[in-house]
């Protein structure tokens, strides 16, 4: 009888109490986060002495990231790209800064076997990689029905699956050493969609999901010393989206690189650039779906994508 009563009492008390507890934990965590961010009191780590691998490093954000990591004193920087000429000029720029050694490899990240082969070679030549920056990406404009099938497959291979291959190959050594960081450059188009680039949106949404899962997984396994960062930059003034006409809140690749390194140092898991885009994401999640459509129409984003597609 006593046993039964305790059980009933427990069931009665436990759930509301636990929900109350959850509420406090969430509140506490949120306050903690806000305070830490406002006071800039995060635990910071240094990137000096690290071995950094950057994919898609021949131009745009990748190039700026390489230079920025060099300025922050990374020991070795490994550049991956498809254009050796451009890579060697980036290598020269990195070496001119004078703090880090630099290697470059020709690698098409869309090809799984090539990724594994090149990683192997890098690990033989340079040693283990402690920071991985998955940055390579492609975009083909065009409405869904106009986009060719092989372009869709290429976008998914390069933008999404490559992150699986590179992460899978460097993560074991990071976990073994208890030190490392995986950075993925996604896009704000991974948080809300735009018409006219459905394959790109799909690939970037996937990335956001991938890094969220990866962060959860490492956390659950207790690997707190291996960081995961997913960066979602808005429109950046690189060659990639140069055909896009309206460019409110455009970022320079330099800004993205600086913010990315800042995020690595402070172990942020999700970075949305520019910050105001976070508001768009909140509104997109809070308001009915037709709201977002209206914004696209009124701000002319719908037409821009048309122009963008037409120019490609």
């Amino acid at each position: 009888m006593a046993h039964f009563l305790t059980r009933v009492l427990k069931a009665l008390c436990e759930s509301p109490l636990r929900i109350l507890l959850l509420f406090f934990v969430v509140l506490f965590r949120s306050c903690q986060y806000v305070c830490v961010r406002v006071l800039r009191a995060e635990r910071r780590k240094s990137v000096s002495g690290e071995t950094v691998l950057i994919t898609g490093a021949s131009r745009g954000i990748g190039r700026c990231l390489a230079l920025e990591f060099a300025k922050h004193g990374a020991d070795t920087i490994v550049l991956w790209g498809r254009d050796e000429e451009k890579l060697s000029s980036v290598k020269k720029e990195v070496e001119d800064i004078g703090t880090s050694r630099c290697h470059y490899y020709r690698c098409d990240v869309g090809d799984r076997e090539q990724v594994y082969r090149t990683i192997q070679k890098v690990q033989e030549d340079v040693g283990t990689i402690t920071i991985l920056v998955n940055n390579a990406g492609v975009v083909h404009g065009g409405t869904l029905l106009e986009t060719k099938d092989d372009k869709i497959e290429e976008t998914l291979r390069v933008n999404t699956l490559s992150h699986f291959w590179t992460t899978k190959s460097v993560l074991p050594s990071m976990l073994a050493r208890g030190r490392g960081h995986v950075v993925g450059i996604a896009s704000t188009l991974g948080l809300f969609a735009l018409p006219g680039v459905s394959d790109y949106v799909t690939s970037k949404f996937s990335l956001v999901g991938f890094y969220e899962s990866l962060a959860a997984e490492l956390r659950e396994q207790g690997h707190r010393d291996v960081g995961v960062t997913c960066v979602c930059p808005g429109h950046t003034t690189t060659d990639m989206f140069k055909d896009l006409t309206t460019q409110p809140f455009s970022l320079t690749p330099q800004q993205v690189a600086e913010q990315t390194i800042e995020a690595v140092k402070t172990n942020q898991r999700r970075v949305i650039l520019p910050r105001v885009m976070h508001l768009t994401w909140i509104l997109k999640s809070w308001l009915p779906g037709s709201w977002m459509r209206n914004v696209l129409y009124v701000t002319g984003a719908m037409k821009d994508m048309d122009n963008f597609c037409a120019k490609r």
Binding site: L156, T160, F164, L189, G190, A193, S198, V201, T202, S203, K204, F205, S206, L207, V208, G209, F210, E212, S213
Partner: peptide, 10 residues
């Protein structure tokens, strides 16, 4: 998750 996020975006 990654594939389903993709499907949502699509």
């Amino acid at each position: 998750s990654a594939s389903k996020f993709g499907a949502v975006g699509f």
